[in-house]
Nucleic acid binder design. Structure first.
Lengths: 228, 228
DNA sequence: GATTGACTCGTACAGCGTACGATGCGATTT
DNA sequence: AAATCGCATCGTACGCTGTACGAGTCAATC
């Protein structure tokens, strides 16, 4: 019996060591890195319900139980896959004296795009927050808002307002992405039942999601900048 | 073999008939109504992962497979439980000439509270939208915004902005509810790593969620009312 | 050469959703 | 009264899941 590494270790930067196993057949050997990357691929291809430990192991050319040396549980795979997808490389001028508003919009739009590129991430987020990369984004958000002159007492509220908006917009958008004829069916239901207003505005069709996202974000930023 | 009713039929108003079965032992007989209500109880008590068909049947004093006469699948149980929890009784003056802003705030705060009363609903929502009661709320939202003078072309965007915000705020709040020492651990992590801004503002602790929700909502409504 | 520790994997098990067919029972038809 | 029918219930069984367990492999170390 051996002790488990279990948690996701954050290696410094260097791999720090030669390849530990030259691979028996042809595969490049198992590693947390490879497991997470493959999990993301699998999630992209098959969705949340499509991720099974056996299937993931197959893709890696490994036995199902081998994964458990690197990973504590299937839940942990979800956590790691989610956080990996949310990585953010801030533009170099972000720390500088650039326009704070532009910085925020850029980061939040990137956030949204990252999640929409991997729609499963939106439905995973509610259950597990607070990964490494999420914290980085929150930190950047806090800095930009402080730069914008938001009072320290209002900072947390401002951060969470923006966070809430992005999360909500992204989750909604992602969940409406897959079901295309469901939307038509829904709109049909509007017609037959008593929802005249949203039926007339064709709420479930023809939506400019990107534009709406940007507009609401502007409203929020206006309010936050005006302070209180 | 018998045909399934499968979908959730919306009975008119009257039960339209005597009790179909006087119950063999003591139980008040199975029904969709009772199944959904019990599912909500079970979800409240045990969370999303705690809902198993066998356990649900046990609580109902029925065999596991009996549920499938009334319900197409476990997924359908989730759908029905979610929609049930989101029912909304609009105050009678909502259709009248009352303050539109008050109407909206009331409905959205009620929405948020309803979901927070059943935290599992927040994590369920991303996967399945568009239940009956959600549509009702969207319709009411649309009417109030129209009353507020929002141009028809901007109506959908305005509805979705508010929806997004509420969903995001609620999901975030709900997912931060259960993990109390996780929050402390998270805050601890902030200290040891490089997140000075949000560490100083104690982002993960001491949050006035309700106040922040209301403030962000006001910003959004300000922006929407100002038109554009 | 013996030992150790990192790593892999085959087998096995409990628990899940649910397909299927048998069964019971009130109402309807004959 | 007897036969039929449709709604509703449930026992059994099947395929699939996550993963506990322990045996196995190999490189590095002593």
């Amino acid at each position: 019996m051996a002790a488990r590494p279990s948690g996701a270790k954050s290696k410094g930067g260097t791999p720090a060591g030669g390849s530990p196993r030259p691979a028996p057949g042809d595969e490049p050997a198992l590693s947390l890195e490879r497991i997470v990357a493959t999990a993301v691929d699998l999630l992209d291809a098959e969705g949340v319900d499509g991720l099974k430990m056996r299937r993931l192991a197959d893709r890696l050319g490994a036995g199902a139980m081998s994964l458990y040396w690197h990973v504590a549980s299937k839940e942990a795979v979800f956590d790691l896959a989610l956080d990996r997808v949310l990585a953010y490389r801030a533009p170099p001028d972000m720390a500088g004296p650039g326009d704070w508003r532009e910085d925020i919009v850029h980061m939040l739009e990137d956030w949204r795009e990252s999640m929409l590129r991997h729609p499963w991430s939106a439905s995973l987020l509610p259950r597990r927050a607070l990964g490494q990369n999420i914290l980085i984004r929150l930190e950047l958000l806090g800095r930009a808002l402080a730069k914008a002159g938001v009072a320290e007492a209002d900072l947390n509220g401002a951060i969470w307002s923006l966070w809430n908006y992005v999360i909500g917009a992204t989750i909604t958008r992602a969940s409406f992405d897959l079901t295309d004829d469901d939307r038509a069916a829904g709109q049909q239901r509007l017609t037959s039942e008593a929802y005249p207003t949203i039926e007339r505005s064709r709420l479930l069709l023809d939506n400019d999601w990107d534009g709406a996202f940007r507009k609401g974000l502007d409203f929020l930023l206006d309010g936050l900048a005006r302070g209180r």
